[in-house]
């Protein structure tokens, strides 16, 4: 941010700076099959965040000492492009923040991917943030989950991510960059929608016990919208062709000719 200045007014007349209500998500759009070389891929635009996620594998785990004879191992790289922010040129290569996010993202997928189906292999997840405006880890996991599901690797659930923040005494959904910089708390979460379990949970700032509980239920509520978008993006290519040919009779394979 531009130097030290005092905190900007983040809520004016009951609305946030970008005009959103407290529990309102930014506009989100998700598209699958965007990287031809990958086993699965997804592109997400979340507000002005633009993020690509791709999944490769399972392939033989290399180097060999990283392999687990009982199950697949997941490797994850989350990165921010050096041109992704409105501020200065970012550094190239992973910094400590990116390494931590890669780790917690990896752990999300260790939970939902049926790893025991592919012993001795590795599955690679890549999350590349091309443009950032706050909440990139939640958006990145959301996209990576879609990429994973579209790859045909079996999963028990398609998790979503969202961040809940606190501005003054108000809990708000989905902090953008400027809110993130000046908020009183930020709590990014990833949740498996099937049982509502928390797969990623981080927090900094100040929250009461009650606020933590409320933040989780806000995240679940927002997740209904996000999960629907993920599901729609995954189904869209199949529904499109199904719809196109719905009036045709089922193929009579193996008849005359």
């Amino acid at each position: 941010m531009s130097s030290s200045q005092e905190k900007p007014q983040l809520i004016v007349d009951g609305k946030r700076l970008d005009g959103r209500a407290f529990e309102e998500l930014r506009p989100i759009s998700i598209k699958t099959n965007v990287i031809r070389n990958a086993a699965g891929s997804a592109y997400i635009e979340w507000g002005t965040n633009k993020i690509l996620a791709a999944v490769y594998g399972p392939t033989e785990a290399l180097p060999k000492h990283t392999a687990d004879p009982e199950r697949a191992v997941i490797k994850c790289r989350y990165m921010m492009a050096p041109f992704s922010s409105l501020e200065d040129h970012g550094r190239t290569g992973p910094n400590r923040r990116a390494i931590e996010i890669s780790k917690v993202t990896k752990e999300v997928f260790e939970n939902v991917v049926l790893l025991e189906n592919f012993p001795g292999t590795e599955i690679n997840i890549y999350v590349e943030v091309l443009q950032s405006d706050g909440g990139t880890r939640a958006a990145g996991v959301t996209a990576a989950a879609v990429a994973m599901a579209s790859s045909g690797i079996p999963m028990s659930d398609v998790p979503f991510g969202v961040s809940i923040g606190k501005i003054g005494d108000t809990l708000v959904v989905d902090l953008n960059k400027i809110e993130d910089n000046y908020s009183d708390a930020d709590m990014p979460m990833v949740i498996g929608p099937k049982q509502g379990n928390l797969l990623l949970l981080q927090m900094d700032g100040n929250l009461t016990k009650e606020e933590v509980t409320s933040a989780i239920s806000l995240a679940k509520k927002a997740g209904e919208v996000i999960s629907k978008l993920q599901s729609d993006a995954l189904k869209e290519p199949y529904l499109k062709t199904l719809e196109k040919y719905k009036n045709e009779a089922p193929s009579q394979q193996g008849n005359k000719e």
Partner: peptide, 23 residues
């Protein structure tokens, strides 16, 4: 294509896709 950068462009050449970002 990446408005946070001072300049940017996405090129698709066949199935090759690249982005250039200028800061």
């Amino acid at each position: 294509t990446m408005p946070n950068a001072e300049g940017s462009a996405t090129v698709n050449l066949g199935y090759t896709r690249v982005i250039a970002g200028v800061k």
